[in-house]
Amino acid sequence: MTLFRLPRITRGPVLHRVLRPWLLFALIMVAITAWWRYEWLTLRPHAFTSGGLLGSAVVFLAAYNLRKRLTFLPLGSSATWLKVHLYVGVGAVWLFLLHTSFRIPNGIFESSLAALYLLVTASGLHGLYLTRTIPGRLAALGEEPIWERIPGLRRKVAERAQELVLIARDDSSAGVVTDIYSRRLFRFFEGPRGWRYYLRPTSTLRRQLLAELGELKRYLGEPQQQLVEELAALTARKDDLDYHHALQGWLKCWLFGHIGGTYALLLFAGFHAVQAHAFHGGMR
C-alpha cells in the first residue's frame, strides 16, 4: 500500500515525473524554513509571515471543495488539484509547526484552534489512507453495486431467501432449513449489520453461516441440498453487499468530518487572524 503512489525506480521518465514535484516541494519548504529562521534570528515578527502562509495554505486547501463544484470551469483537472492538495496539506503541517514555534499552544482559543487544525489534518490523512486502501478491497469482490442501491439489493436477497425457505417448508426435512433460517439467517438477511461491523467489517459471520449451512447438507435430500446451496450463495451475496455498504460508507463519511472540520477551522483561523492583527501590540 502506498499513499503517494511512488514509481518503480527502474523507470526513468516516471522517476522524473514523480520525484520532480517532491524535489520542488522540498526546496520550497527549505526556503520557507530559512526565511522563518532569518526572521527569528533578526527578531522580526515571524509569526505573521508563517501565519499568513499557513492561512493561505488552509484557504487553498479548502478551495478544492469549491473546485469540485465548478466542474465546468477550466480550472485544471480534479486529479491535479488533489495532488497539489496533498503537497500543500503536508507542507501546511510544517508551516503549522513553524507558526507555533514548535510549542504546544496554551490559551483556550489557541489550543482549540490547534486541535481543530490537527483534527482536520488527521482526518485528511485518514481519508488518504482509506482512499488508497479500500478501492482495491472492493474491486476484489465480484459485484460492484452502487451505494444508494444497496438497501434495495439487500431487500431482494432477503425476499429470495424467504421464498426458498417457503419452498423448503413443503418437504419432509423442512424443519432443518426453517430452523437455521429462523435462528440464524432471518436476522442476517433482514437488516443491515450492527455498528461494530460498520466500524470494522469482517467476514467472521459469513464464514460461520456458510459453515453451518454446509453442515446441514448431511441431513438433506438432493433437492433440499440445492436449496441450501442457493441459500449459501445468497448469504455470501448479502455479506458482499454489507461489505460494500460499510466500506463505501467509510469512503463517503470521512469527507463529512474533513470538510465540516475545515469550515470550522476557517472560522476559527479567521477570528485568530483578526485577533492577532488587532492586538499585536508590537512592531510588524
Binding site: 466542474t71 480534479s78 482512499t131 460492484e144 452502487i146 469527507l255
Partner: peptide, 28 residues
C-alpha cells in the same frame, strides 16, 4: 480502474451538472 475509484460519484455529478442535471451515463 476500480483499484483507484473511491466510488465518490464526482464523475456522475459532473456529468449531470454539464447536462442540465441529467447524468448521461451509469457507473456500472
Amino acid at each position: 480502474d476500480l483499484d483507484r475509484c473511491t466510488r465518490c460519484d464526482d464523475c456522475v455529478r459532473a456529468c449531470a451538472t454539464a447536462h442540465e442535471g441529467n447524468p448521461r451515463f451509469l457507473r456500472e
